[in-house]
Structure formats: C-alpha cells, structure tokens
Simulated scan of single mutants.
Amino acid sequence: MLAPQLLRGALLSPFKRPRPDAPLDTTPRTRPAARPDPRHLTTYADLCGYDNAPDAALPLTYPHILGFPLAMGIMSTPAFPLPLLGLVHTSIEIAQERPLRPTEELEIGVHAAKLSPHRRGTEATVVTEARATDGTTVWTSTSTYLARHKTSSRNNTPQATGSAPADTTPLPARAEWQLPPDLGRRYAAATGDRNPIHLYALTARALGFPRAIAHGMWTFARCLAERRREHDTPGPVHVRAEFKAPVLLPGTVVYAAEGPAFELRSPTGAVHLTGTVLPAG
C-alpha cells in the first residue's frame, strides 16, 4: 500500500519549493477501526525490544506505525509543500492517557498542523491521534520533519521546536547495542518505511550519507522499550525526543539514562538522540 505513495512522493520531490509561508492543507485523514495484527505486532515488538508477552500493553510507539500510511499519504501529495525525498524526522512527542491493549480497536487520525521556519530550512508539524471506541483521544504524537534548503537571514534562528540548551554532562550508560547492517531493511519490512537512506549503502550514498542509517523511530522505540523495563508506568505517559544525528549501520550505540532523561550516543560520545519523560497531564 505504501509503495505507490513513496514513488509518487519521490517523483514530485524535485518540483517542490519549500518555504515556511507556503499554503498547507490541514485536512485530517482517518483510519477507522484500526487493530494491530498479532503477527505484525510480534515482529515489531521483537525488533524494537519490547516485551512480547500476551498480556503486555501495546508498545508506546505502535500507534505511530498504524498512522504512518496516512502520514505518507499526506506528505506524498502535490499539495504538501515539502519534498518527501530528503525529509528528516527531527523530533517526536507522544502523550498517552492510559496503556493500550493489543486487542483494542482504535480510530487513527493524521493531519499536517503547521509549517515553521528552521535555521536549516522549513519544518512541518504532523499530528497523529488515536481515539478509543467511545471517541476519547487516548494517544497523540506530534512529529516535526525538516526539509533542508537555503534560508534568509530572518530564518537563520534556532529551530522552531525551541529546545533549551542541552546539559553537556553525559548520562550514565545503561546498555550497549550492536546494530547489524540489515537493521534498516528489517525495520522497513515491519513498518513499510522504505526510505532509501535506510536500506543499503549504495542508496544511502546517493542521498548524501556514507552508508545506510537506522530509522529514527527505531532508535526512539528501542530506547523506550529499554526504559519500560526499568520504569514501567501503568498510568499516563508523556515523552519527547529529538533526533540529533544519524546512526550509521552497522554500528555500536550506547543507551544512557538518569531520572527523566535518556539518550542514545556512540561509544565516542557523539549524541544521536536525546529524550525526556515529561510530567503527564
């Protein structure tokens, strides 16, 4: 289902002229009665390190996967002003009101919310919501995607997401993970996100990377799975992460955490992802 959208988005990309004041269609797209396929959920949970027990709650990141085809449908249309090729996922924020059951039926809605100037180009904010059968919103994610292009001096400001200066003190290391060269292909098979930068060194080099890179959503999901082992939260959860630098495949990364903060970094100290568990509610 995603292949035609990816192809359309790739073909339209050279004709897009991104700018923060471009018109943006904010009409939502919906997927009613979405329910995880048990085999697909098992594959995803195993790949991202989540508990796969029958009574385990739905992984915190999984509704994002349910909404991904809708998001791709929006970003691959002629009306979406940013080119799909080269679009970089820069941040994600998830608020979950309660644990979700794997057997639960959800209505998924996705819409593009706004465009914002960024020091390196233009950022789009895309919102995904999951609603229970009674109509209440039980899960929301807000993602930003950056289209890199030359900017005028008035746009040469800190990124529109407005993060505070990071503390340079390294967090204590909790685990070290060896990432195989086919991780991007395995995640693409599980989620449908077949961006060429994640698949092979050859296709990644064509888009400016020395070799294939891990999906940002895999790094985020893997960190949350590790954190859930240490701090399983039965109530509301609110978490935010920023994707700082690509993770090259194959490679080694270090998961570090202390209190509400967590990060993924290389053994040399280069930071790939920073995250914070925010107060719920």
Results as ranks from 00 to 15, higher is better:
residue 170 P to K: 04
residue 238 H to A: 14
residue 172 P to F: 02
residue 202 L to P: 03
residue 98 R to F: 08
residue 101 R to L: 12
residue 200 Y to D: 14
residue 263 E to W: 01
residue 271 V to P: 08
residue 40 H to R: 15
residue 238 H to Q: 10
residue 3 A to Q: 13
residue 150 K to R: 15
residue 95 A to T: 12
residue 103 T to L: 05
residue 13 S to C: 08
residue 167 D to F: 01
residue 115 L to M: 10
residue 125 T to I: 14
residue 220 F to W: 10
residue 183 L to H: 07
residue 242 E to M: 02
residue 89 H to W: 02
residue 153 S to P: 05
residue 161 T to L: 10
residue 186 R to A: 05
residue 23 P to E: 05
residue 164 A to R: 12
residue 195 N to W: 03
residue 17 R to S: 11
residue 252 T to D: 02
residue 2 L to K: 06
residue 240 R to M: 13
residue 274 T to L: 14
residue 170 P to I: 06
residue 176 E to L: 04
residue 93 E to K: 04
residue 233 T to N: 06
residue 42 T to M: 00
residue 124 A to F: 08
residue 139 W to N: 09
residue 78 P to I: 08
residue 20 P to S: 11
residue 236 P to D: 10
residue 157 T to H: 10
residue 264 L to S: 03
residue 149 H to Q: 11
residue 56 A to D: 06
residue 238 H to K: 12
residue 54 P to C: 11
residue 140 T to D: 01
residue 272 H to K: 01
residue 80 F to H: 13
residue 210 P to E: 14
residue 167 D to L: 04
residue 43 T to I: 08
residue 169 T to I: 06
residue 31 R to F: 07
residue 16 K to Y: 08
residue 38 P to A: 14
residue 121 G to T: 01
residue 234 P to L: 08
residue 32 P to F: 10
residue 257 A to F: 06
residue 143 S to P: 02
residue 275 G to Q: 07
residue 172 P to Y: 00
residue 222 R to H: 15
residue 54 P to W: 05
residue 6 L to C: 04
residue 230 E to T: 05
residue 188 A to P: 01
residue 276 T to P: 03
residue 126 V to P: 03
residue 182 D to M: 00
residue 209 F to N: 03
residue 76 S to V: 14
residue 236 P to I: 13
residue 255 Y to D: 00
residue 6 L to A: 14
residue 98 R to M: 13
residue 216 G to S: 00
residue 37 D to V: 04
residue 155 N to K: 03
residue 226 E to Y: 03
residue 113 A to V: 06
residue 84 L to G: 08
residue 38 P to I: 09
residue 32 P to R: 07
residue 60 L to C: 09
residue 275 G to I: 05
residue 67 G to L: 11
residue 260 P to H: 11
residue 197 I to Q: 07
residue 168 T to M: 02
residue 144 T to Q: 12
residue 221 A to E: 01
residue 63 P to N: 06
residue 74 I to D: 00
residue 92 I to G: 13
residue 114 K to F: 00
residue 144 T to S: 15
residue 182 D to C: 00
residue 163 S to V: 05
residue 121 G to H: 03
residue 34 A to M: 08
residue 185 R to H: 07
residue 232 D to I: 00
residue 1 M to C: 11
residue 181 P to I: 01
residue 225 A to P: 10
residue 182 D to G: 00
residue 2 L to R: 10
residue 112 A to Q: 10
residue 140 T to V: 12
residue 42 T to A: 11
residue 125 T to C: 14
residue 168 T to G: 01
residue 95 A to R: 15
residue 39 R to F: 04
residue 16 K to M: 09
residue 45 A to F: 06
residue 194 R to I: 10
residue 25 D to W: 04
residue 123 E to T: 12
residue 36 P to Q: 07
residue 244 K to S: 13
